[in-house]
Design a protein around this nucleic acid. Structure first.
Length: 794
DNA sequence: TTAGCCTGTCATCCC
DNA sequence: ATGGGATGACAGGCT
């Protein structure tokens, strides 16, 4: 029971942490019953996957997670997994560069070439004419990947995938060389951005904070500081933009108190919203002006609570960029599920093409990064850039760079018109492919248009901001619940980085959840071949790994170290393999650490390993290394051989206790031999136990990763819902406000004079009637609860 | 040469 | 008391 408790505790604690971090209350039962069967196994107890004799059955499943992490074909599986993880990482990291390169490509082929070779700083994204000119000639290049003189891009799907990440190689390398924190990407982006500022001759003052950082960057600011700066700037921009909205700053302060539910409730029903609205937005309480949106109020709160942490800036970045992007990415993922309209090829063509272009020289690479990094920093500053990149859907959301998301970026023609340098062009630019339609329900979109100032005309900006604000509110919530910001972020960092897990929820073409698993399963099912070793383990190697074995060595039965790699697992129950069609023809050797002599003497029930089952490297190594082989034989094998143990290590280890004792009684062994045999048995058992233990750990990690992915998705969905509700609330508030104005202006006192709004206001009474009251009275009534709430906050 | 990973082994706890 | 499973820690080999 203890281990069960342990599993439960482990899973529960980690998920509790996750949930607390995310700020989403999730019904665990739902996950246990529906979404996370593996998790259920973890929490409720060890599953069959944890027993040595049954996880073979899982080999047959198509799901990658069905392949047990320590299954015998896991060599192939994890090799594939590692590679795919790398690709996945590249995919994430690369998002920026390819996108930017595309910009250059579209601007002008010759310019691109020159940019690639000379890193021309004269390139400006505001040059609309250039983009227009290239429109006709460039479109086929984007789609087909051919024709572009500077492109060496291979249009094949696989290559395009890899090609798309080619420039990220350096990034990946960089990542590998540096620390492995996820936020490193952001740091890299910032770094590139700064370099681009200089390269393009852009005034540093364009990036208020970044430029200041840049000036001091000669002294090499730490990556953490850079990241903070980035987040800070984004956040401050979010603040400014929010404040720029037609919002009454005075009223904005009271709103958060009025709608406390929003902070702790990430999912509100419409009725709840209405109820909240009614309950918290009494008529006439405030000035007739429209009160500040809730999100703004939350921002204010965050602003007040966030201590200044760096460089005298008053505001600290309340949220993690990576987290931010992942959230949005998850939202996009959600959208992707709703709008399943992909066009990977054209997307990949574009990215790959641009990849090659930007990758031709280092300068061009940095130039290629310009668009993304710049936009990522200037999402709220440079409207034209930002909007211009929106059709591809990736400039604002670099980590969302995802072919599956290409539904939003499929039309290329608008992209070529993205030369608009003012916000008025946005609507025409988006035209039929307006992302708003994908992202927001039409009514909400209209709401957005109503409530947003021209500063924020496009839905992505709003979305991003709101997502950020949601993050803020969630963090606030977390802090209210006992998490301080540092703890929360630290925890998140630990979860995202230190664990070594890729919590990336992106669904790239190399997405682990799909391609990786299918790849591995395919490899294991289609090209597996059974291998047998002296250790008695059954191994599987793919064709690529298969090679001939030296017959004499097989006959000798020497334990081959490399061979061991294919035969890491020892299994006790060969019957588990029966019933698996693709494994029917597999012979099984369940000996374990079989001593050479005994294996020869007893002629175990297993065939001599054939050369086919040996790895290629083995071939090259085995021949000249007969002595080496002996050395590499397991110590127990050698000991058993030396002690002339008359039976195999496999028997020593795997026989049941009764049979084992019987075996010992049959052979008259010396004390030393008996001790050795028992040691061999103990070590063999422990070895398998260790394998299972590690396997279990891996399983847990994988399941947790999946769980995190699911939670992120849920979080994104909830955030999206919340945003929609907020928009609805805004809309309703506006309606209420207009109604209020209309009613108020029509009211007349006994003398037929209108009531001055500064002295009177309308109040809802409990019975639904509307009263006009002097403001002095309403102030007295409303201040009391305000005070109470303020006290509560403290 | 070094770091990271993998595996085997030991010690220990627990059932 | 014994066997054995689970797991942290460590060492050695490999890449």
């Amino acid at each position: 029971m203890l281990y069960l408790k342990k599993y439960f505790t482990e899973g529960l604690i980690q998920f509790t942490i996750l949930l607390s971090l995310i700020g989403v209350r999730v019904d665990l039962d739902t996950y246990l019953s529906n979404q996370l069967p593996p998790l259920r196994e973890i929490i409720l107890g060890p599953s069959s996957a944890y027993t040595q004799t049954q996880f073979h059955n899982l080999r047959n499943t198509l799901d990658g997670y069905g392949i047990h992490p320590k299954s015998v074909d896991l060599d192939q599986f994890f090799t594939t997994r590692r590679l795919l993880n790398q690709v996945r990482q590249l995919d994430r990291l690369s998002v920026p560069s390819p996108e930017l390169s595309t910009w250059l490509v579209h601007r002008d082929p010759e310019t691109v070439v020159s940019a690639a070779s000379q890193s021309s700083p004269s390139i400006t994204l505001d040059n609309g004419a250039g983009l227009e000119d290239v429109n006709n000639s460039e479109t086929p290049t984007m789609r087909g990947g051919g024709g572009a003189p500077e492109s060496t891009y291979n249009p094949s799907g696989e290559d395009s995938t890899l090609g798309a990440v080619a420039p990220e190689d350096s990034q990946e390398q960089h990542n590998r060389d540096g620390n492995d924190d996820l936020t490193k990407e952001d740091i890299d982006l910032i770094d590139i951005l700064w370099r681009q500022d200089i390269d393009l001759g852009a005034g540093r003052e364009v990036f208020n904070y970044s430029s200041r950082q840049k000036e001091s960057e000669v002294e090499k600011p730490s990556p953490e500081e850079e990241e903070r700066a980035e987040a800070q700037e984004r956040w401050r921009n979010g603040v400014n933009l929010q404040e720029a909205q037609p919002v009454d700053g005075e009223t904005g302060e009271s709103i958060p108190e009025q709608i406390p539910g929003l902070g702790s409730q990430t999912s509100l029903s419409l009725q709840e919203c209405l109820r909240l609205l009614e309950a918290t937005f009494p008529f006439g309480e405030e000035s007739p002006e429209f009160p500040a949106p809730v999100v703004t109020a939350e921002l204010v709160v965050a602003n007040e609570e966030a201590p200044s942490t760096s460089r005298g800036l008053p505001l600290a970045p309340p949220l993690d960029l990576e987290q931010q992007w992942q959230d949005i990415m998850a939202i996009m993922e959600l959208q992707e599920m709703e709008v399943n309209n992909t066009s990977e090829n054209s997307f990949l063509s574009t990215t790959s093409n641009s990849t090659n272009t930007s990758g031709s020289t280092s300068e061009s690479g940095s130039v290629g990064s310009f668009g993304l990094t710049r936009s990522s920093t200037l999402i709220h500053q440079d409207v034209s850039l930002h909007q211009a990149s929106l059709p591809s859907c990736s400039q604002d959301f670099p980590t969302l760079f995802n072919p599956e998301m290409d539904a939003t970026s499929t039309p290329r023609t608008p992209l070529l018109r993205m030369s608009s340098s003012n916000s008025s062009n946005v609507n025409s630019t988006f035209g039929a492919t307006n992302l708003t339609g994908l992202f927001l329900p039409p009514p909400l979109n209209s709401t957005n248009n109503i409530t947003c100032t021209p500063v924020l005309p496009d839905p992505f900006s709003t979305l991003l901001e709101e997502s950020m604000l949601d993050e803020i509110s969630l963090l606030d919530l977390a802090m209210e619940e006992g998490f301080n910001q540092a703890q929360a972020s630290q925890l998140e960092d630990e979860l995202d980085s230190d664990s070594g897990l890729s919590l990336d929820s992106s669904h790239s073409p190399a997405s682990p959840s799909s391609s990786e698993t299918s790849c591995s399963s395919a490899a294991s099912s289609s090209s597996t071949s059974a291998t047998f070793s002296e250790e008695g383990a059954v191994g599987y190697s793919t064709d690529s790994e298969s090679a001939a074995v030296e017959p004499e060595e097989g006959a000798v039965g020497g334990y081959q170290p490399e061979f061991n790699k294919l035969c890491r697992m020892s299994y006790q129950d060969p019957s588990q393999f029966h019933g698996l069609p693709q494994l029917d023809n597999i012979n099984h050797n369940h000996t374990y650490n079989l001593p050479l002599s005994s294996s020869f003497d007893e002629h175990l029930e297993l065939p001599i390993p054939t050369g086919k089952k040996m790895g290629r490297e083995k071939q090259s190594k085995l021949k000249p290394q007969q002595d080496f082989l002996d050395k590499q034989s397991s110590r127990d094998e050698r000991r058993a051989r030396a002690m002339k143990i008359p039976f195999s290590n496999e028997k020593i280890i795997n026989l049941p206790v009764e049979e084992f004792n019987e075996l010992l009684s049959k052979h008259h062994l010396s004390e030393a031999q008996l001790a050795l045999v028992r040691d061999i048995r103990r070590r063999g058992k422990n070895k398998m136990a260790a394998q299972n233990c590690r396997k279990r750990k891996l399983d847990t990690i994988i399941n947790l990763e999946q769980g995190v992915h699911d939670l992120r998705r849920d979080k994104a969905r909830l955030l999206k819902e919340k945003m929609e509700f907020i928009r609805s609330i805004r809309q309703m508030k506006q309606k209420v406000q207009s109604l209020y104005q209309e009613v108020f202006t029509q009211l007349r006192d006994e003398e037929g004079q209108p009531y001055p709004p500064s002295e009177y206001s309308l109040q809802y009474s409990a019975d639904g009637s509307v009263l006009i009251m002097p403001r002095t009275m309403t102030d007295q009534q409303t201040r009391k609860p305000e005070k109470k709430q303020k006290d509560k906050k403290k």
